[in-house]
Write a protein that binds this DNA or RNA. Structure first.
Lengths: 142, 142
DNA sequence: GTCAATGCAAATGGTTTGCAAGCTC
DNA sequence: GAGCTTGCAAACCATTTGCATTGAC
């Protein structure tokens, strides 16, 4: 997917080589990488960039909703796919998989017990992925 | 809720004063405290305990399913209520509220796209809590 | 030319760990 | 008494930040 100016153009966003690289890498990587993984992939490709910049860029993208931060045990992971979707997390190897099941908008209209205003929801399934169910021991991908 | 021996009794679990205190505090606190908050509450009560022990105990409880760890931005938080239930997180003040809506078991039987084995799911709503919708500025509870 | 972005290294914050002493079983 | 648990401090890891320099607009 071509990376071009985006809505971040607002408020003095400068489109540097590093930012282009980070967003491009994130859109390519399907495995919900950590900042460190994005950094390693870029360095392996020969790009000149610092880890601090990767962190700064990923956070900025998440703040601008160009990426999504996923929290769990260990390092934060990032998802370059911004459309609403759910995740499956393998509790054996830690892999995170994007799910194709439809987003349930109706949930955002639910009357939750308290006097709260719902803006959205996150649904995450946990279990064992195909690879880990197969090999009894389970891989240890991370 | 009275704290008595629990299933941790297995594998040489020793029921120390500190462990009793941590579990008791966690069951009392409704606000999904961080390890640090549990520690402070216990010290304020005059209990003698170290922060390292609070961390070790909370992790042990979570591993044994006597507590649940909640991940998000910032420090990990813990929930002493072990029955299946969902959460609402206020994106303004950070407050986490337990929801009364029923757990959707049927979701755990869904055919997710991949060849995965589902063991459970987590559903978290995001939005503004009553306190923050009221005061336009929003409280900043944490 | 201006001011945001970068790189580096140091600082931070949350959490874990090594080890000697204390306590539960 | 054996060995799990504690407390302390140091170690650790992920992430952030200060500051001088670089580079986008």
């Amino acid at each position: 997917m071509a990376i071009m100016q985006m809505r971040n153009m607002s408020k003095n966003w400068r489109w540097t080589r590093q930012r282009r690289s980070v967003l491009e890498a994130l859109r390519e990587m399907e495995d919900h990488p950590t900042a460190e993984s994005v950094y390693r992939m870029l360095r392996d490709r020969g790009e000149a960039i610092s880890l601090a910049t990767v962190y700064r860029t990923l956070r900025a993208l998440a703040d601008d909703r160009e990426a999504r931060a996923l929290y769990g045990a260990g390092a934060d992971r990032f998802d370059g796919r911004t459309g609403p979707h759910y995740h499956f997390v393998c509790t054996t190897c830690g892999r995170i998989i994007d799910l194709a099941i439809p987003y349930m908008d109706e949930l955002d209209r639910s009357k939750l017990s308290a006097d709260v205003e719902v803006h959205g929801h996150e649904l995450t399934f946990r279990g064992r992925c195909g690879a880990c169910s197969g090999s009894e021991e389970g891989s240890s991908d991370a």
